[in-house]
């Protein structure tokens, strides 16, 4: 299963991912309520010790900026071997061998395992990050904008690599991105997130051909259209709300072209509009649409 999360910057996507991993920086952040269910366990209730076994072992994560995500004073081999040593009973030699294998897997010659991160390019560093993330064959891989910091040509290569490895390792993938093209390329299901909430969720097809939430519609409308050379791009009016000062009622109502009096108060519950398609908008509750 591949799921993609799409949304504005600041919409709360990366924070949710860190929340799953129990890595929300504290201070300023703290997870107050809710639960993260993984294989029947609530990860938020797990003690730190058990959580450490899951991090990097069963769930691993790829971060946005490969330039700063690798430790500059350790060889890439050491950094891959570290996660292997933490989650398996391999000896140091075996871990090193595994590290070289993983490098080969992501398309880097194994002989470079004694090189330091500064000797690699950005795309190669992200490959190393992928190698670290997949080294323990995790059940779930969370990728937080894994290609944003890379050149367009490298982006395609890295995405291709992730797609192939995912298939090979049978890993589920949560991909967080702002790039609708990337979503279309590798995701099966898409969750559109606004102000920390999923506002629309469905299969790739649901979202791309049958989008319902005004925000999702606005998001797709803001894409430049190659065929129709309009001079101006359509944009969603207004700004993403400050996460510490969210509007009451529907979080989107100040920017929503369809907003009504009822949208300004009370919690908007999600509505199931087909077996796979969920949307969180007051207009569907009242059966207006």
């Amino acid at each position: 299963m591949r799921r993609g999360g799409v949304g504005d910057p600041g919409a709360g996507n990366p924070t949710t991912a860190l929340g799953i991993m129990g890595l929300v920086p504290d201070p300023p952040g703290e997870v107050l309520s809710g639960s993260v269910l993984f294989e029947g366990q609530d990860l938020l209730q797990l003690p730190e010790k058990n959580m450490r076994e899951i991090r990097g072992g069963k769930i691993s994560m790829i971060f946005q900026d490969p330039m700063t995500s690798l430790n500059p004073v350790m060889t890439v081999g050491e950094q891959i071997a570290e996660v292997v040593l933490l989650h398996s009973r391999m000896s140091k030699q075996e871990a090193r061998k595994k590290a070289m294998e993983m490098l080969e897997q992501v398309g880097i010659p194994g002989g470079r395992c004694d090189d330091y991160p500064h000797q690699f390019s950005g795309g190669m560093k992200q490959r190393v990050m992928i190698a670290i993330a997949l080294a323990c064959s995790p059940e779930l891989l969370i990728a937080d904008e894994p290609t944003t910091a890379l050149d367009v040509t490298i982006q395609a290569q890295v995405l291709e690599l992730m797609r192939n490895l995912k298939r090979e390792y049978g890993t589920s993938l949560i991909l967080i991105t702002h790039d609708l093209g990337v979503v279309a390329k590798i995701c099966d299901k898409v969750a559109v997130v606004y102000a920390g909430e999923i506002i629309e969720y469905g299969t790739l097809e649901d979202i791309y051909t049958d989008k319902r939430h005004p925000y999702t519609i606005g998001l797709f409308d803001s894409l430049p259209d190659i065929e129709n050379e309009a001079a101006e791009l359509k944009v969603i009016q207004g700004m993403v709300p400050d996460p510490s000062n969210l509007p009451e009622g529907c979080k989107f109502h100040p920017r929503c072209p369809y907003a009504q009096e009822g949208c300004k108060h009370g919690r908007v519950e999600p509505v199931q509009i087909s077996e796979t398609h969920m949307v969180r908008c007051g207009r569907f509750r009242s059966g207006e649409v």
């Binding site: 450490r52 899951i54 991090r55 990097g56 994560m61 971060f63 430790n71 570290e82 933490l86 670290i132």
Partner: peptide, 14 residues
């Protein structure tokens, strides 16, 4: 504060 510290934590390091 650096990102690689977060990476290390994400590996499950104590």
């Amino acid at each position: 504060r650096q990102d690689y510290i977060r990476t290390a934590k994400a590996k499950g390091q104590s």
